[in-house]
């Protein structure tokens, strides 16, 4: 039993790393421009399809394709922000919700049109490989997805903390008017932040492709987890999203030891509701 739980914790951390990258994008976008992107999980789907298309065309491994996927989704996300989100930034929140929810429908329908409704997957040499440490098994595709996510998170941290653009982004999120007085163009920052946020979701999609099927509505599988993670971490808190991702990943995996798989999402729902009830500003108590 202990071994089973330990195994579940390891699996949970590996999956949680991916959840973290997924949710970080959402948190970043909310933190900078106070928009909740309900289409975020559709950008995961988009990243999966791009990685799949690259794999199908030139046989490149989805993990190796991460830079391509990131750039492609970043560019698409930045364009979406400039053309669709920017015009509603000052509109009532209801309009913003309708816009991003509508965008998610369009993306799902677009994927159906382009790729059909079939389940697609890639074949990698390490698909079923696993490393064994003592009695613990570490699945290679899950490990690679985790490592790629960790690298992405570290790069994002370095960008936000160590570059002029990252500082300008944090400055804009803290005080937009003061940032303008420093010569920072908020419109440009919003475009880059949204591109980054969606690009990260796309990367999460690429790194899970070696162990997950892609189909037009695959994003739905991740939206509940993603919103739980950001709520837990404090909406708008990037570090909170990382912690929240790991916590939800572990709880998700450990609950599977005790409960039938069908009830796994019920546990996630319970965490989501409990957070909203008892710690609405998130685990770390960070106020957005």
């Amino acid at each position: 039993m202990t071994e089973q739980i330990l195994q579940a914790i390891v699996n949970g951390i590996l999956i949680g790393g991916v959840y973290a990258v997924l949710a970080v994008g959402l948190a970043l976008v909310f933190g900078v421009m106070e928009i909740v992107n309900f289409a975020q999980s559709e950008f995961v789907m988009l990243g999966m399809y791009i990685a799949y298309a690259v794999f199908a065309a030139v046989g490149l491994d989805p993990i190796a394709a991460v830079p391509i996927v990131f750039l492609a989704v970043f560019a698409f996300g930045a364009a979406v922000q400039r053309l669709l989100i920017q015009p509603v930034l000052r509109a009532p929140m209801v309009s913003q919700i309708f816009l991003t929810v509508g965008l998610s429908f369009v993306l799902v329908a677009g994927a159906q049109l382009l790729f059909g409704a079939t389940f697609l997957s890639v074949v990698t040499p390490y698909q079923t490989a696993a490393l064994t440490f003592g009695g613990l098994q570490v699945s290679v595709p899950y490990l690679l997805a985790f490592l790629a996510s960790a690298v992405m998170a570290a790069l994002l941290w370095a960008f936000l903390e160590r570059t002029d653009m990252g500082r300008a982004m944090r400055a804009t999120s803290q005080n937009r008017t003061a940032a303008q007085l420093m010569g920072i163009n908020p419109t440009r920052i919003y475009m880059i932040a949204f591109g980054l946020g969606t690009g990260l979701a796309g990367v999460a999609g690429a790194v899970i492709l070696p162990y997950a099927y892609v189909f037009p509505t695959v994003g739905h599988n991740y939206s509940l987890v993603m919103f739980t993670v950001v709520t837990l971490g404090g909406l708008g808190s990037v570090s909170g999203a990382v912690v929240g991702g790991l916590v939800v990943g572990v709880i998700h995996a450990v609950s599977a030891v005790f409960l039938p798989t069908q009830l796994q999402n019920v546990v996630v729902f319970a965490i989501f509701l409990a957070t909203l009830l008892f710690r609405p500003s998130g685990l770390l108590g960070a106020k957005a």
């Binding site: 500082r167 944090r170 400055a171 803290q174 005080n175 008017t177 003061a178 007085l181």
Partner: peptide, 8 residues
């Protein structure tokens, strides 16, 4: 009102 970036 100064408007500094408080969390920096």
């Amino acid at each position: 009102g100064r408007q500094i970036f408080k969390r920096m």
